[in-house]
Simulated scan of single mutants.
Amino acid sequence: MPNHTLQIKVCGMKYRQNLQDLLLLQPDYVGFIFYDKSPRCIAEQEAVFDLDFPIQAQKVGVFVDEAVPVIREKASQGGLQVVQLHGHETPQTCRVLKEAGLVVMKAFRVGTDFDFAPLQAYAASVDFFLFDASGASPGGNGVRFNWELLQKYSLEVPYFLSGGIDLMHAAEIKALRLPHLYGVDLNSKFEVQPGLKDVPRLKQFVEELRG
């Protein structure tokens, strides 16, 4: 997969004007966190979801060990096309959501001794994996893991790279030769405060990655 086609996901959006500014950059995926322990939790759906999203910008809801009926309700209310599962969700949970017509992205936190073998059980039940760094929180920790570990990945499921990605990493990411790397997930390193993105810095990253 040519790296110039990498998809760009910006996660943890919370504020209406900030989101409106971001959408001008034509991101491919926009993430909203539905996890009340996160400082980026989106409480008022109607405050952002009535904006005009570019046709290619898919809305992603991020959930952590949430009940399937709640996920489906939030997806319906917010017009979410994708659900990102960032907890201990089982392959069965992923399959139920996929069969409900949602695109399913299952996140895993990668440490130095990460074993890719258990992911085989999810392969038929998800559309994407997302590999994030281990940290104190389920996501948004602002640290990266050793990307060389992804050389051990042998499944056919495409994945997003997450965890501490900053403006300085654009060239490095473009140079990666990882056949199933599908996109990058940008969050805390592009923030003024939790949930408020520095859109000019995001614009620089997007232009460099897509250039």
Rank of each mutant, 00 (worst) to 15 (best):
G195L: 08
E73R: 12
T90S: 15
C11R: 06
P2F: 01
I165Y: 05
E191W: 10
H88G: 02
V199A: 02
V143R: 11
E44G: 01
K106V: 01
Q20N: 07
V62D: 07
V83R: 07
L51N: 12
K174F: 01
F129G: 05
L102G: 04
Q92P: 00
F32A: 00
L80A: 11
Y122Q: 01
R16K: 11
G87Y: 11
P2V: 00
V68T: 14
I33R: 08
V104C: 12
T93P: 01
I42V: 13
D52Q: 15
L19R: 01
G142E: 06
Y182K: 11
H88D: 15
S137E: 15
G78L: 12
V70D: 13
Q120D: 08
Q58T: 00
F116L: 07
Q26T: 12
A75W: 04
T5I: 03
R210G: 04
F116R: 07
L51C: 08
V64C: 11
M1W: 10
A47H: 09
L85Y: 14
F190E: 10
I42Q: 14
H169S: 12
Q7D: 03
A43E: 13
A67Q: 15
M105R: 00
M105H: 06
V184F: 00
R177M: 09
V83W: 05
F108I: 06
P39Y: 11
H180I: 03
V68D: 02
A117E: 15
K74N: 10
F129A: 08
I173V: 15
P194I: 01
C94P: 07
F108G: 08
Q45S: 07
F129R: 01
F145N: 08
H4R: 13
R72A: 14
C11T: 07
P27A: 05
V199I: 15
L167R: 05
K106I: 05
K203Q: 13
P2A: 11
D28L: 03
L155T: 05
A121W: 04
E156L: 09
I71M: 15
E66N: 09
R40K: 14
V48D: 00
G87Q: 08
A124P: 03
L22G: 08
D198G: 04
D21C: 07
D166L: 05
G135E: 12
V82F: 11
R177I: 04
Q58Y: 00
E73A: 13
Q26K: 11
R16E: 13
K106Y: 05
V103R: 13
Q56A: 13
K98V: 02
C94L: 06
L186F: 03
K9V: 04
K152P: 00
A124R: 11
F145V: 03
V126F: 02
M1N: 11
V60S: 10
Y153K: 06
L202S: 05
N141W: 13
Y29H: 14
L150V: 02
A117I: 02
F129C: 07
